Amino acid sequence: MNLFDFEGKRPTVHPEAFIAPTATLIGDVTVEKGASVWYGAVLRADICTIVIREGANVQDNSVLHGAPDAVIEVGPGATVAHSCILHGGVLEEKALLGNGSTMLDGTRLGAGSMVAAGSLVSPETQIPPGVLAAGTPAQVKKPIEGTMAQFWVDANPPYYAELAQRHRTGLKPA
């Protein structure tokens, strides 16, 4: 695990969180119980604060950073999927930022909502709870209830929690 102090700010990681050995956490980062930060992810809180709440997951090659004094929060059970950029945004509980998507400063993804893969959430955009948003710029498309998107929002947190425990115990240098 690559943890770095920066100007007196130090990452805090709960002992029951999983941080992949190639993930990098810098500065004012907090990772709560049962959360996971996966391979190649970079959480750079040199000028901002980053909080990964209980059971949340930040997947491979994602980058989290923000403007000075911003608070970036990945809520309980929320997902930042593979190769995302989260720059100054907030994901509420069980929200899902789809693969390769970007959320910019001042954005908020409501509880149980999903941003489709490859989308761009423009600065200051507020996506309400329980919807699917997509596009560049991302716009609300429909309620998520009863869709395949809801399946991913619901299935992802327990799946990644279990997979993180397997990596905690089963990962060995080859």
Score class of each variant (00 low, 15 high):
A45S: 05
R44A: 02
K33R: 15
R44H: 07
D154A: 14
V63F: 03
V140K: 11
Y159K: 15
I144Q: 10
G146W: 07
N57Y: 06
Q126E: 12
L171A: 11
E73V: 08
L64S: 04
G77D: 06
L171E: 10
L104M: 15
G100I: 03
V42L: 14
V42N: 10
G130L: 13
S62E: 01
P11V: 00
L96A: 09
E73W: 02
V31P: 00
T49M: 07
L25I: 01
A155G: 10
H82G: 02
R108S: 15
L91Y: 02
P173E: 14
D105S: 14
L96N: 14
V71F: 01
V153E: 13
A56F: 04
A117D: 10
S83V: 12
V90G: 06
N156K: 08
E16I: 00
V153S: 15
L43S: 00
T12D: 02
A161W: 12
T30Y: 00
A116L: 08
F6H: 13
P68Y: 13
E93F: 00
F4M: 07
A81M: 09
K172G: 03
R53D: 09
V29A: 08
P129L: 14
G112S: 09
L132A: 01
E145F: 02
E92Q: 14
L43P: 03
I144F: 07
N61R: 12
L132F: 05
V140Q: 10
G130S: 09
V115H: 04
P11D: 02
G130H: 11
V121R: 11
E162P: 08
L120I: 10
T169P: 06
D154P: 04
A41D: 11
K94V: 06
V58Q: 12
L25G: 06
R10S: 13
A17D: 03
V13L: 02
Q165H: 12
N61I: 01
V140T: 09
V58D: 07
Q150Y: 06
W152I: 06
V115I: 15
D105G: 09
I19P: 03
R44V: 08
M114Y: 07
Q165V: 15
L86N: 07
E124W: 10
V13A: 00
G8W: 00
N156A: 15
R53N: 07
N2L: 03
G146T: 11
F151T: 15
G135Q: 09
E54F: 02
A111F: 00
T125M: 08
V71Y: 05
L86Q: 11
P173L: 13
C48H: 09
R44F: 04
H82K: 01
G66N: 08
D5S: 05
A41G: 06
G34R: 12
A111V: 06
G118S: 05
A81C: 11
Y160N: 12
E7F: 00
G106H: 06
R108K: 14
V80E: 07
I47M: 12
E124H: 12
G77R: 12
L163I: 10
E73N: 03
S62T: 01
P143A: 14
L171M: 12
L163G: 03
I19Y: 01
E54G: 09
F4V: 02
V153R: 11
P157I: 09
A78V: 06
M1Y: 00
G40K: 13
T22L: 05
V153A: 12
E124I: 07
G66Q: 08
